[in-house]
Computed example of a mutant assay.
Amino acid sequence: MPKSHKLVYAIYVVVWIIMAINPKYPQDWLLENVLVFLIFPFIVWMDKKHNYSLISIILLLIFASLHSLGTHYTYAEMEHFDGITQFFGFERNHFDRLVHFLFGLLIFRILFEMITPGISSIKTALLFTFTMVISISTLYEMLEWLAAITFHPELGIAFLGTQGDVWDSQQDTLAAMIGALINLAFYKNYKKLLDYNRDR
């Protein structure tokens, strides 16, 4: 694994440790980080095996760091976003919506690199990646709901972050979809990446 990748992972570990100190709701923090405990080692292992591009690792670091920030304060009560909420006159804190959008925007590239080996058609590769983003986003919403009602139903809004919005899950998935769609505008860059990965 390149040293640059190790540095990115090390930066994330430092960010994660800082955000793990005295979270607002410890039980919520633990639930929100279950997937991190599972996915982070998997990403490192896959990177060692397939050597993903540095930019995809950096984009993943940005998203993961924002997720850590959200788990520290909870997405519904992320106080550093209150200024934006007040400035635009929003009725709720949209930090969670922003992170869902960034999931589709920032995670798209590493998913593309993961699933495209063996795929020769750029249209198929992009469609498959786009579908994966939506599927993962939808699955997360379902797992989030199941975790809340199974383990800590008393956490309520602190964990689910619905803030009284009955369409919260659907809008979160839509935000991720929009983020993923933006990547399709960089069709030519992804075609070059597909050709590069195929020729390696």
Rank of each mutant, 00 (worst) to 15 (best):
H152T: 07
T131K: 04
S120D: 14
H152K: 15
Q170R: 14
G104H: 14
N93K: 02
R97H: 05
F151E: 00
A148K: 06
P153Y: 13
D96M: 10
R97V: 08
D165K: 07
L160T: 14
A175T: 08
S169G: 10
I115Y: 01
F108C: 06
Y140H: 15
M114P: 00
Q170A: 15
S169Q: 07
P153R: 09
P117K: 13
I110R: 05
F112L: 09
V99Y: 00
W145V: 03
S135Q: 08
T131I: 11
W145S: 08
T173Y: 02
L146Y: 08
S135E: 09
T150L: 10
D172M: 12
F103Q: 01
E113W: 02
L155D: 00
Q163T: 07
L146E: 05
Q170G: 04
T124V: 06
I107M: 14
I110H: 01
F128R: 07
L106V: 09
F88E: 13
L143P: 05
L102Q: 05
T85W: 00
A147E: 13
F90K: 03
M142Y: 13
V133H: 02
D168W: 08
G89Y: 14
E91P: 01
R92V: 10
Q86S: 10
D96C: 05
E144V: 06
D168L: 04
L160I: 11
H94L: 12
L139A: 15
E154Y: 09
H100D: 04
R97Q: 06
I134M: 14
L102V: 04
R109T: 12
G89A: 11
A158C: 05
T173A: 15
K123Q: 02
A175C: 15
M142V: 12
A148P: 01
E154T: 07
Y140K: 12
G161Y: 11
I157G: 10
V166L: 12
L98W: 04
S169Y: 00
W145D: 11
T138H: 13
R97G: 03
E144A: 14
S120R: 04
F90M: 13
S121M: 11
I157Y: 03
F130P: 04
G89F: 13
K123W: 03
D165E: 15
F108I: 07
H94T: 07
F130G: 07
S169E: 11
F95M: 10
D96L: 08
M132Y: 13
L139Q: 05
L160M: 10
I149N: 09
F151G: 11
G164K: 08
S169T: 13
F128Q: 04
G161V: 04
F159T: 05
L106G: 01
S137Y: 06
F108E: 00
E154P: 01
A125Y: 03
N93H: 09
L139F: 08
T150Y: 01
F112V: 06
I107Y: 03
